[in-house]
Computed example of a mutant assay.
Amino acid sequence: MKRSGPLLTLLAGLLLALFMLSLNVTTGTRSTSAGNDSPAGAVPASPAPPGKATATPGKPSPSPSPSRSAVPDGDYAGRTDDDSSAVAVTLRDGGAVAYFCDGRDQESWLKGDVEDDGSMRLTNEQSQVLTGELAGKRIRGTVDMGRREYGFTADKAVKPSGLYRATAIVRGAEVDGGWILLPGGRQVGILKRDGRARPAPRIDPETGTVTVDGKQLTARPVTP
């Protein structure tokens, strides 16, 4: 009986060890299974491919704005058919300004638009009218001054020929001068001092300078 006691104790310890070993194995398996949420054999979903970028074409470059008129810019100067007066016309960007002058006491400033065919009708507040048409390098037309109508021909001018004007206050008086420089060096112009007209003094064709009542002014090319 004394010998069976130790054997029973050893057997009980061995059974306890086997039981604990079996419990550890079972627990470890369950823990491993619990750590994987995905079912067996499941294939991870591949990330969706990025959407194909659609190239947005850039805005086309704006085309150059068409000119207001097909008529080229230019300066024109000439005489009336009766050779009594001079006429100058300046064309810029589809607009026109003109000056009629007899060099003594009669003048007229007119302005307006030029049509694509070269025709023009220029007017002012005094109801005076210049009608003309550009053909090649020449403008042919008429100036209606109210009491009389003048036909004229103005050829394309080369600088310094063309239309000039100067305005200023000289010795307390308002001075306004207009000049037409014709080919060959001839000048026709009127200078108004407080509204009273007289023949204009000559201007320097290279610089546009002119002396009025002892003061030097500068006449500049006229544009619409």
Results as ranks from 00 to 15, higher is better:
166 A>G: 06
205 P>L: 00
192 K>V: 07
195 G>N: 02
169 I>R: 15
159 K>T: 14
147 R>C: 05
184 G>M: 06
177 G>Q: 05
151 G>V: 05
192 K>C: 11
200 A>G: 04
149 E>Y: 00
156 K>Q: 15
192 K>Y: 09
164 Y>N: 11
161 S>T: 13
180 I>M: 09
200 A>Y: 01
180 I>H: 05
160 P>G: 09
162 G>S: 11
178 G>Y: 06
186 R>H: 12
173 A>G: 03
177 G>H: 03
186 R>C: 04
155 D>L: 11
166 A>H: 03
161 S>M: 11
159 K>I: 11
150 Y>R: 04
168 A>Q: 09
147 R>F: 13
191 L>A: 05
182 L>V: 06
156 K>E: 15
164 Y>G: 11
169 I>F: 11
150 Y>G: 05
167 T>A: 15
185 G>H: 04
200 A>E: 01
200 A>W: 00
151 G>A: 13
178 G>F: 07
190 I>Y: 02
176 D>A: 13
182 L>R: 10
147 R>N: 12
167 T>S: 14
199 P>N: 02
170 V>K: 07
192 K>S: 14
161 S>H: 11
183 P>R: 09
153 T>Y: 09
197 A>W: 00
194 D>Q: 03
150 Y>W: 10
199 P>G: 02
165 R>A: 14
171 R>L: 12
196 R>M: 11
167 T>W: 09
149 E>L: 10
202 R>N: 10
171 R>G: 04
151 G>W: 04
195 G>V: 01
196 R>N: 10
199 P>F: 04
151 G>Y: 07
148 R>V: 12
185 G>Q: 06
153 T>G: 14
176 D>V: 12
175 V>H: 04
162 G>E: 08
162 G>Y: 11
198 R>L: 11
171 R>S: 14
148 R>W: 05
185 G>N: 10
164 Y>D: 10
151 G>N: 10
159 K>L: 14
198 R>E: 14
179 W>R: 08
148 R>E: 13
182 L>N: 08
168 A>Y: 02
198 R>I: 07
149 E>A: 11
190 I>P: 04
151 G>K: 10
174 E>Q: 13
202 R>T: 09
180 I>E: 07
163 L>M: 13
204 D>Y: 01
203 I>C: 01
191 L>Y: 06
163 L>P: 08
186 R>P: 02
156 K>Y: 06
195 G>H: 02
165 R>C: 05
156 K>P: 01
185 G>M: 10
192 K>Q: 13
201 P>L: 00
200 A>N: 02
176 D>L: 12
169 I>L: 14
193 R>F: 01
152 F>K: 08
163 L>G: 07
183 P>T: 08
187 Q>M: 09
187 Q>I: 07
159 K>F: 15
196 R>I: 12
162 G>A: 11
189 G>P: 01
166 A>I: 03
172 G>Y: 01
193 R>D: 05
163 L>H: 12
199 P>I: 01
175 V>I: 12
162 G>N: 10
183 P>G: 06
202 R>K: 13
203 I>L: 08
194 D>T: 03
158 V>A: 14
173 A>C: 09
188 V>Y: 00
198 R>W: 03
178 G>D: 08
203 I>T: 00
181 L>F: 05
152 F>V: 07
181 L>N: 06
180 I>N: 08
